[in-house]
Design a protein around this nucleic acid. Structure first.
Lengths: 349, 349
DNA sequence: GTGTCCTTTTGAAAGGTTTCAATTCAAAGG
DNA sequence: CCTTTGAATTGAAACCTTTCAAAAGGACAC
């Protein structure tokens, strides 16, 4: 029904080859001819068929982005919501500018996710991938490298020498946070881990431990607890930490939302956060500054990262090489009122 | 490089037609042959080329979703973040289940957005569209109807008889909110509008005004102020309202984030929200319940809506008809502590 | 054996573009 | 007026499927 390149050619009185050349600038076309073709295109409101084009030139003009989602009807809001959306916004902006789309797919981690990647790759539905939330041992990285499909990741993997990525320097971030707390006099610092398996968990913990070591602060294993990126995870972790016979005077959460959950748990125990106990977050979501108390946290330029990752991927697709292969973003500590000098906490049970 | 259907056919010792039939179940194939073909497919890790398939059968297996984004480097976080993500999550879940992808594109409203739709439609890149944030006079609705492209919207338009949508009953929502406030004794109620142009602004205002009328509360035009979905918009609007010689005792914000901004502005003036002044939000984002004070708001089941919209669109694409063409979701008022009985506010200037 | 009727399989066209070798055109040089 | 040359244009193949009319195969009755 919609017009094809043949219709345009007929109307302009030229061959389809010429129309194609006008469309792609693939050969010199005389100015008057060019004008005639463009006129016909306008008149017919012609737009080349994407599938035919892809079939021929093996480019889809699409980037793949598979979002890890927990399935099920009553899923609680993913807490990294804001970071993801900012990231996506940056990616979209760059992609749109270059005229490529982003094909979004969702899958729970595991075999189902693998199946999605396989289908997208083997079915040639995308030109390359944007990877999010890289894991220490990341099947996706191995698969895409094996298949020779270009990709750029937000985050590193155990062995990240090989592929291009942008990541926040989590080690440095945790050095900043921990130094800040130690400077305030804290020596019993609770540490809530990001979800196990994510590479960022490794880097962050290593930064945390390094500072403890440097200051000769003994490591109490019970102060390190499993956690996650949700409010509930932060709440539960804080509760566990406060039940310890010798609870921490400061707690580091894996992100702002978990920090907010942790704060709520502390407040429920009658503690005043910032005075009786300090809490630090991660991400610096907009609400962090407005929270009660305003949250000390580490700023993560998610939007910029999304844009940069996309730029790198597009460069990889056209040049075949990425200018800066691996980018490590220096985090910035934003000190607010959820952290304060150490104090004798009065835990009322 | 990757195997084609011919490779599979050769390996299985059959014709390409037979392989295609096995793939699509388009003809009866003898069981033993079928098995041989499947075996070859497995061995080669074959996956039909999406472009070739699309070219032939005129289906892309992709739904289009164009997100309205404000461009520019320093854009403040879109405040409807959470709602959008939940919506997207629901849509993705259903789409993934049916094996279709979501092609995401971003564009600022205006000619650029039109160009994006045009390219996607005329280039046959998607089978249908999911529309978000419908406007009273929505060019997209007109264009898609004119082009005969299937779509389902989250939200209505001025004339919504014609197209399928899911929407929250904003009129009813504002009736609930306003009745709640009037019941608490409020008669001077400030109203912060959603961004102008959006259809939801119309419905909501109409619900608000209806209840005022019903209770014989005179309408003071200065209590209705332009607003938006951001923290800043809420903050500014509240500031303006409090500057009035006779400020309101309650304020209705267009969403939770704006309500939080409004609360901050009120607190900055020394008011205790819930006692000196009441504030109501919209959306019921997860943080609303944990806010200080916990926010009275209207719950919006964004995830379900995203899923439902997608289900409707998929039905439209396969059957050609949608079971329930238009769905109006009844909102639920969640009363928390940001609203309370009217009080003589003591505005300290 | 032959004819009939299903069931299964085949081969080629069609879908809309790009690309490339080949052809035509126009102008310049002799 | 004929050649030569470089620029502009053309036509057909190729990309990988699906689809459909036609052919082949197999079972059964006569």
């Amino acid at each position: 029904m919609p017009p094809t390149i043949h219709d345009v050619a007929r109307r302009a009185g030229v061959s389809v080859g010429t129309v194609s050349h006008v469309l792609n600038g693939s050969a010199t076309v005389r100015e008057t001819t060019r004008e005639r073709v463009l006129q016909a295109i306008r008149e017919l409101d012609y737009q080349p068929d994407a599938a035919a084009r892809t079939l021929r030139q093996r480019r889809t003009g699409t980037l793949g982005l598979v979002r890890t989602i927990q399935s099920g009807p009553h899923v609680l809001a993913e807490a990294s919501d804001h970071v993801f959306l900012e990231f996506l916004g940056g990616a979209q902006e760059v992609a749109a500018q270059e005229g490529v789309g982003i094909l979004l797919w969702g899958a729970p981690p595991g075999p189902e996710e693998e199946e999605v990647y396989r289908r997208l790759v083997r079915g040639r539905r995308v030109d390359g991938f944007i990877l999010l939330g890289t894991r220490v041992d990341d099947w996706r990285v191995r698969y895409l490298e094996e298949q020779g499909v270009p990709f750029v990741a937000f985050g590193r993997a155990a062995d990240s020498v090989s592929f291009p990525y942008v990541d926040v320097d989590g080690e440095q971030a945790l050095r900043l946070i921990t130094e800040h707390l130690v400077y305030l006099g804290h020596r019993r610092i609770g540490y809530i881990e990001p979800p196990a398996g994510l590479t960022c968990a490794l880097h962050r913990r290593s930064g945390f431990l390094e500072v403890l070591r440097r200051h000769g602060i003994p490591l109490d294993g019970r102060l390190i607890v499993q956690g996650g990126f949700t409010w509930e995870a932060g709440e539960r972790a804080m509760r566990d930490l406060l039940y310890l016979p010798d609870p921490p005077t400061a707690v580091i959460a894996p992100n702002d939302v978990a920090a907010m959950g942790a704060i709520a748990a502390a407040q429920a125990r009658g503690l005043k956060v910032g005075r009786d106990i300090s809490v630090v977050g991660f991400d610096d979501i907009p609400l962090a500054a407005y929270w009660q108390p305003p949250l000390t946290t580490v700023h993560q330029p998610a939007r910029w990262i999304g844009a940069e990752v996309t730029r790198m991927l597009l460069a990889l697709l056209s040049n075949g090489a990425v200018p800066r292969k691996q980018v490590l973003v220096s985090p910035e500590l934003r000190v607010r009122q959820s952290t304060g000098p150490v104090n004798q906490p009065t835990v009322s049970i």
